[in-house]
Design a protein around this nucleic acid. Structure first.
Lengths: 366, 366
DNA sequence: TTGAAAGCGCTAACAT
DNA sequence: ATGTTAGCGCTTTCAA
């Protein structure tokens, strides 16, 4: 009596071996050598139609799939790009990842995704893993607090990757040293923030708080710099700048805004949120405080995530073409590998005007 | 005269070979055999501290990283799980992917992500790729139109994966046949839709349109079924059900809603959107038509994506714990591999009440 | 305690 | 036109 388990059934027909079907089994079934099978499947060598068909049939019948590891071992590695980001659920990061994946797939490259949760230690592990896996392109996405440890880490990644023929791309963060063999692709955050602050200023606002600073984070620091520069250019004193370093995320924006509103009607008339998620939190806190946007307070965000248009009210923000950032990263890195090292590309951004900005309320202007 | 290029510099110190550092180089530097190095690095074999240190130092100095392909070839493959989904920018899918990634990472597994854009052909290619790559777990995420071609495809995936010792998990979609060696983890869409429709009914609505049907898609079909069942249970005739098969996505929801509103004030008083993105589009169209939510029309969505709370008004919807879906998929599949095949797990959902539902306007009730 | 050697599945010379 | 064979980098017996 034999139990009719999957294992038992599997062992039955086709004489299927326990593990995967190998090229040798295909060769046997087709009555040729493994070399011939390899040639047929690789398709890079002339093989007479007759044997070709025999081999294909055998492969099909056995449902053979090549072992990518064995192939990579002898062929010098598969074409694979690795994206490393904080989290995939951030709309902005997700779009970048999608861009990378799309561009990679279009060129027949594989895409590996790793998330760090913002932990440098984890980032290091992931990069190591990607190296082991033989990724030829490692793309680090998103801003980070740039301290000495970071600089050293990135220098090490770049050197290590470079010495094994792989390439490092920094997406939305800077290279600690221009001599490092890494390609940088990012947005001009300072210019974007400058323009956006200008938009607020033009509407008549003078007391604008920047919500979501993150000292050391290059992306946020650049936005803060643009904000300050715009204020200064408009003739306002340095003290006019009010930066709340609450960090990013909807929850942080909500909490910080609630605190700001705690003491009754605030002095400021506009809020520059570090990104759209912060803006979402701020919007919510303002509504909870019984204030209206943009009548009582104007709010702007950054990134123009897909749902920014659905906020209440639709959010005025800066469009940073995230998917294009991802696509550009792989396109540039792959187009001209040699020249890419040390290169620095900046992608343009522009303001998207919607309904979250109005003139400050008469009583509180100035 | 020698150009001081990176290549030249690299060739200089350390005698670094052109490619990656291999175990042999480490062995040479440490003055031991490759076997010893392997034993030290694997750590699964007693090695005297003295040699151990020597080897570690050599590996460190050379910045050695093992070749995962070679390791996989001899060691039977790395622990890797593959997630295949339509796109990463959908908030719902992104959350599922994050859950999978998190649970996999926590167990030391690697996570490969592939996107299909909804193309069955591409899905097939990706699954093939994952097989080549030696994924031990392939997770297909999201609903699909379930036709004969689909059934055949999935049966083939499952059989092929199973015969090479890998496992197939269907996340949010059904197995075409319970005998197929695949694990299914999904939500009870019918129950969720039933409850949500009941919520609308309790508020006094009788003319509710379902926006976002997608005939053949199991997830949507189940929601429609729940919607119809609730209507029937409330004593309404079958004709009371009005299903608009516009498919999913914000754009589709917007377009379909705009059309519905084209002929002036509509007959229906509430909208059941197929998911939150459709709801976002519908909300927008309603606002553009000069109508208010929930005063003129009530709207509900499905999935409770992270930003549903920020819609205008905050959206009443069904919470489907997407990240937990992803985590559960890998947890269950890994916990009891043998028993997982053919198993079917259903995760609970619940309504999240916010501000997008009110009683129908007096003049239009009934 | 350590080394030598046999493969893992595949490709690419090199033979025939 | 097709077969034989030498590795790719690593782990793991089997000896010493």
């Amino acid at each position: 009596m034999v139990a009719d388990t999957y294992a038992a059934r599997r062992a039955g027909s086709e004489m299927a071996a326990k593990g995967r079907v190998t090229i040798r089994e295909v060769a046997e079934r087709a009555g040729v050598s493994v070399a011939t099978v390899s040639r047929v499947l690789s398709g890079n060598y002339p093989v007479p139609p007759a044997t070709r068909t025999r081999v294909m049939r055998a492969a099909q019948a056995l449902d053979y799939v090549a072992n990518a590891h064995a192939r990579a071992l002898v062929g010098g590695g598969r074409k694979m790009v690795a994206v490393v980001l904080r989290q995939v659920t951030s709309p902005f990061y997700a779009q970048v990842a999608e861009g990378v994946e799309a561009e990679a797939a279009a060129r027949g490259w594989l895409c590996l995704v790793g998330t760090t949760g913002g932990d440098p230690q984890r980032e290091l592990e992931i990069v190591q893993l990607m190296r082991e896996e033989g990724a030829r392109l490692v793309i680090l996405v998103g801003g980070v607090v740039e301290d000495d440890a970071y600089r050293e880490r990135v220098a090490h990644y770049a050197q290590a990757l470079d010495s094994s023929g792989a390439r490092l791309v920094l997406c939305g963060r800077q290279a600690p040293d221009p001599d490092i063999p890494a390609l940088v692709v990012e947005f001009d955050n300072e210019a974007g923030a400058h323009a956006l602050t200008g938009h607020l200023l033009s509407a008549g606002h003078r007391r604008i708080v920047f919500l979501g600073g993150l000292p050391g984070n290059t992306a946020l620091d650049a936005r803060v710099a643009g904000y300050r520069a715009a204020l200064a250019q408009h003739g306002l004193p340095p003290e006019a700048a009010q930066v709340v370093d609450c960090g990013l995320g909807r929850a942080a924006g909500h909490r910080a805004m609630a605190e700001l509103l705690d003491g009754g009607t605030p002095e400021f008339t506009a809020v520059f949120a570090g990104d759209d998620m912060v803006a979402a939190g701020a919007l919510r806190a303002i509504a909870e405080a019984g204030l209206r946007v943009p009548d009582d307070i104007s709010v702007v965000g950054y990134n123009d995530i897909p749902l920014a248009e659905d906020f209440n009210p639709p959010l005025t923000t800066v469009r940073t073409p995230a998917e294009e950032l991802g696509r550009a990263a792989v396109r540039i890195a792959l187009r001209d590998p040699e020249h890419a090292a040390g290169a620095h590309h900046v992608l343009g951004t522009h303001i998207v005007v919607r309904d979250s900005v109005a003139a400050p309320p008469p009583g509180r202007a100035r």
